[in-house]
């Protein structure tokens, strides 16, 4: 599965457009991470717990999108976009969407 945020895959030709595919996940962090983040809030700097959490979630959202595209018989996803929104304190939704296509 080729994934790209361009409208084409460089050097390849699109043969068929299949449609929009998307994946999303809502994740909350656990208390340990929250505590560390609270401490980090005093000295500033990167909140590693949060960073990892969001990276994992984004990966999961992408996996879901790819699975959906596979089901539809696509072999590439174009023009992929990410969006993040915080639903509640300590929980975030990661959403990713793109166009599933078949390429030569």
């Amino acid at each position: 599965m080729e994934v790209s945020n361009l409208e084409t895959i460089p050097g390849r030709q699109v043969s068929e457009y299949i449609g929009l595919v998307s994946g999303s996940t809502v994740r909350a962090k656990h208390i340990g991470r929250d505590l560390m983040a609270g401490l980090k809030n005093i000295v500033g700097g990167e909140l590693k717990g949060y960073s990892e959490l969001l990276q994992e979630s984004r990966k999961e959202a992408m996996d879901r999108m790819v699975k959906q595209a596979e089901k539809l018989g696509a072999n590439a996803i174009l023009n992929v976009r990410f969006s993040t929104s915080s639903v509640a304190q300590g929980a975030a939704e990661l959403y990713v969407y793109g166009t599933a296509v078949r390429i030569n």
Binding site: E2, L6, P10, G44, E46, S51, R58
Partner: peptide, 18 residues
């Protein structure tokens, strides 16, 4: 000639100090 293309992602969470 393009050999390969791939999605690259990078992210970080940064906090401000007190």
């Amino acid at each position: 000639e393009v050999i390969s293309s791939e999605l690259a992602i990078g992210s970080t969470v940064v906090s401000v100090d007190y």
